[in-house]
Design a protein around this nucleic acid. Structure first.
Lengths: 191, 191
DNA sequence: CGCGCGATTGAGTAATTTCAAATCTAGTGG
DNA sequence: CCACTAGATTTGAAATTACTCAATCGCGCG
């Protein structure tokens, strides 16, 4: 799994042996487009690293409307962290937007790796730090920008997304209705 | 600084010597109500741990309206992480809502502590994990709940906040105008 | 060719914002 | 202790924005 090794080596360096040690805890899994890795109510045992493809993580509100928490493409980690961490049932759906390959690791194994290899604990600390900053930026963006600006910012930051994900999903990520997004979009073309 | 030690020992255990080692990197600082620990444009050198009091972290939009990223009370860590991490100037204002005592640590010293003491790296990994989950919950709440529900959720989770922070700041945290929050609030009392 | 899904458009409705004014409250100085 | 002021909160009314619902359009796939 060169993808994962490259991913680690953006922050730390690993010998072949070390990487092999870590790798033994990961299981590969493939899911087809529109299939679920996780559904509301499931017990959550794994954290997932996306090797290829794309997932969307979303919840349904009381009116069954989906709200997208995260898109996870190559190199991204995802799961229902709240559920994995506390043991409560999942609230999050993890659905494949495309055929997707993931590497799965249990919380216990990840903790074990971190305990045994200081480097890996470092890796995940920094990774979490980046994740935290990313979410802060998103909150800031939700508070200070309107949907059009957020849309433009999103496709600037992740230009691949617009090719891979239907617009109504982007709307569900940005927090506006698909009609509103469509209108904002067409209005900005005029100007 | 028993507060900080207790805080660490919620997740890890430390000997007196270990704690003293860690402690030497922290500097104490007091700021008065309405004073700033950080202002937009500043170079950011420190991360702050709130020992007592309360801070608000906010940004101004292009119309100079404040949007609150975080309230930091006792036991919370805060700074402009984006700026601390990348070296760009601060976008965040860190202002004391009450007279506040913080412990300050530089990024370099924190990294050093983490590198030298695996335990501490573990502590901060888990802390970041919690932080990440917290922000995810907030995003979810912004996407799925209306302002009234979010307000009620907020004061249920942090009942102290409402005593300590003016309502217009809560509105700036929730992402609605103070007038709207006021109306939602009075409407819910009738029912 | 036609079906079906996603995207767009229109019209009416609901919610939120803005701006202005009126209250209320806590802290200050006399 | 009381009056006063600045800041905070509430209320009203008009304007803006986004939403819902329904209908239409466009395109790719079988």
């Amino acid at each position: 799994m060169q993808v994962l090794r490259d991913h680690f080596e953006k922050l730390i360096s690993l010998t072949d042996t070390e990487f092999a040690d870590v790798m033994q805890y990961f299981k590969s899994r493939r899911i087809l487009k529109k299939q679920f890795l996780l559904q509301e109510g499931d017990a959550v045992s794994y954290e997932y690293f996306v090797v290829s493809g794309c997932l969307k993580a979303y919840v349904l509100d009381e009116e069954e409307k989906p709200h997208i928490l995260q898109f996870a493409m190559e190199d991204w980690w995802t799961t229902d962290y709240q559920a994995l961490y506390t043991g409560i049932p999942a609230r999050v759906f993890l659905e494949a937007v495309e055929n997707t390959e993931v590497l799965c690791i249990t919380k216990a194994d990840k903790d074990k790796i971190c305990a045994e290899m200081h480097k890996m604990e470092h890796f995940f600390r920094i990774k979490n730090q980046h994740g935290y900053i990313g979410l802060q930026q998103r909150i800031l963006s939700m508070l200070t920008n309107n949907a059009k600006d957020r849309y433009e910012q999103l496709i600037k930051q992740y230009p691949a997304l617009i090719q891979r994900v239907p617009k109504h999903d982007l709307a569900a990520f940005l927090g506006v209705s698909r009609e509103t997004l469509s209108r904002l979009y067409s209005r900005s073309k005029e100007m």
